Simulated scan of single mutants.
Amino acid sequence: MAISFSAEQPFGIKLYPIFEKVYEAATGQPASAFAFTPGITPFASFNEVWISCVLYFSVIFGGQFLLRYLPSFKPQVLKIPFQIHNVLLTAVSGALLALFIEQIYPMYHKHGLFYSICEPSAWNQKVELLYYLNYLVKYWELLDTVFLVLKKKKLEFLHYFHHSMTMVLCYTQLGGKTTVSWVPITLNLTVHVLMYYYYFRTASGAKIWWKKHLTTMQITQFVIDLFAVYFCGYTYFAYTYHPSLPNMGSCAGTELSASFGCALLTSYLFLFINFYRITYNKQKAAAAARKGAPPNSNKKSVKQQ
């Protein structure tokens, strides 16, 4: 296999043909035959999505209630399954990210950014299949919460809200064919490669110094996401309803899916900022207390300088 780097082949080799062989071996169907079809494609109906959410909440909160009366699992019992879960999600997230880049970059290189995020033709069959597989991975990621329950960890609202609603978000964007979807998806996959690698390593006993930076990356991700989706939403609504306003033309996707995506990603940004503020302010206060100094002593000294 010859290695040649180009806009059409950013990794030196074509990854999608390899993926097609794996997909056909796993499903018995050629990748080119896939189409996201409600009522036919698994998990392609709203009933399946909301039932999955109900089951998710029933399992995690029901399990949390039942485990209050049972002894805790020994750490060794969950260690290996947790490591396997995280290393597989690291690999799958990385593979999907590479496949998305291989599809999106040539489009961007040839037609520019606006085409890549707004033109209906940018939503092609190959990209739709990758969107769908990313959507299915969101069901797999619900196991993150199951592990927390089994470990008798506290369930934060941000955690279960984010996991359940991201699954819903991916479903709505698939149904609405919002072409800009690749922006939040590729950024999310990038963060998840690092995040699941972090959890795999720490489960092995490694001390990783960059946990705080993961949260910073997540916040940065949502800022970029919102810039992209609000731009697409604005130019669509301006072009459609108020053409006298400056705009760059229409943008692919249904109004409902675009509005839901904007609202949900906005809520994520505020929730993650609040999480960052609470978590790391507490850590600073605890560190200062251990040193026997007031929590704000460092800030005061900086101001005095």
Rank of each mutant, 00 (worst) to 15 (best):
L256M: 04
P246S: 07
L214W: 02
I224R: 06
A288P: 01
G233E: 11
I224F: 11
N296W: 08
F231L: 15
Q283P: 00
L214I: 15
F227K: 03
Q283A: 12
T215I: 08
N274H: 15
A288K: 08
Y239I: 00
Q221P: 10
T216E: 12
S250K: 07
P246W: 05
C262H: 00
Y234I: 10
G233L: 04
Q221I: 07
G233H: 06
N296L: 07
L269D: 04
F237V: 14
K284S: 11
F231H: 09
A287M: 02
Y239F: 14
Y230W: 11
A288Q: 08
H242M: 10
I273F: 14
N281W: 02
S259T: 15
R277Y: 14
P246E: 06
F270K: 09
A289N: 01
R290A: 13
A286H: 01
G261S: 12
R290H: 00
P246N: 08
G261D: 06
A258R: 15
S297Q: 13
N247I: 03
S257H: 03
R277C: 12
L256D: 06
G249M: 12
Y236C: 03
N274D: 14
V229N: 09
P246G: 06
T220W: 07
P295D: 02
D225S: 11
N298A: 15
